[in-house]
């Protein structure tokens, strides 16, 4: 485990990833981003990178899970669990489950993002405000260590004619405004019936 923390593999962001996701931990405020490149024909993960704003377990799990996912098909990679990562790292303390599970969620999120972008989602339901809020619940507010819905950053949500409009209770020039806007947009614009996402700050 220490080796993966000291020298994490597959670290960094990726230009034009085929799929990506950022996940945050409501328990402690850790964050993980995962980026994947997918070979279209074989549906195998050809490259994978991660970034972490988190503790040692978070970083080490990001490192091991990206190692394990590389070369696997999307379906195989989806099956990877926290237990697999923990076992590969030689056992993680249970109190660290919440921070290490993030990397797994990041990987699954990136795969889901890929599937939505490539129209591979099997069940298609029309986007509602409830679905938008559900997705926004996975956007972290680093100021509170909780998601942007729980911390009341979302003033209003409207879904109309394929456009999502969100009002965010945060100054536009805030240090995290850009990060929150980008992340919220990424989570929503891949929805199959959405043409645009408009996010307004104070």
């Amino acid at each position: 485990m220490l080796e993966h923390f000291k020298h994490p593999r597959n670290v960094g962001s990726m230009e034009n990833p085929d799929g990506k996701a950022t996940e945050g931990s409501p328990a402690c405020g850790d964050m993980v981003s995962v980026y994947i490149k997918v070979d279209e024909a074989s549906k195998k993960i050809s490259d994978i990178k991660f970034e972490s704003y988190g503790c040692a377990s978070n970083i080490a799990t990001g490192s091991i899970i990206t190692e394990m996912a590389k070369g696997k098909t999307l379906e195989e990679a989806k099956q990877l669990t926290w237990k697999d990562a923990s076992a590969a790292l030689g056992g993680l303390p249970p109190i660290k489950a919440h921070c290490s599970v993030l990397a797994i969620e990041g990987l699954r999120g990136a795969i889901q993002n890929y599937e939505e972008r490539h129209d591979l989602v099997k069940v298609k339901e029309p986007t509602t405000e409830a679905i938008v809020l559900k997705r926004l619940k996975r956007v972290m507010n680093p100021l509170k260590g909780l998601d942007m819905v729980a911390t009341k950053l979302v003033k209003s949500v409207e879904v109309k004619d394929g456009i999502i409009r969100i009002a965010v209770d945060m100054p536009a020039n805030h240090q995290f405004a850009a990060a929150i806007r980008d992340e919220a947009r990424e989570r929503l614009e891949t929805l199959w019936d959405i043409k645009g996402v408009e996010i307004e700050f104070n």
Binding site: P8, V11, G12, S13, T22, M31, V32, S33, F50, E51, S52, Y53, I59, P142, Q175, F176, A178, A179
Partner: peptide, 9 residues
């Protein structure tokens, strides 16, 4: 900071 998603901010 290199490995942090917030590092560039």
């Amino acid at each position: 900071r290199i490995i942090s998603p917030l590092g560039k901010i």
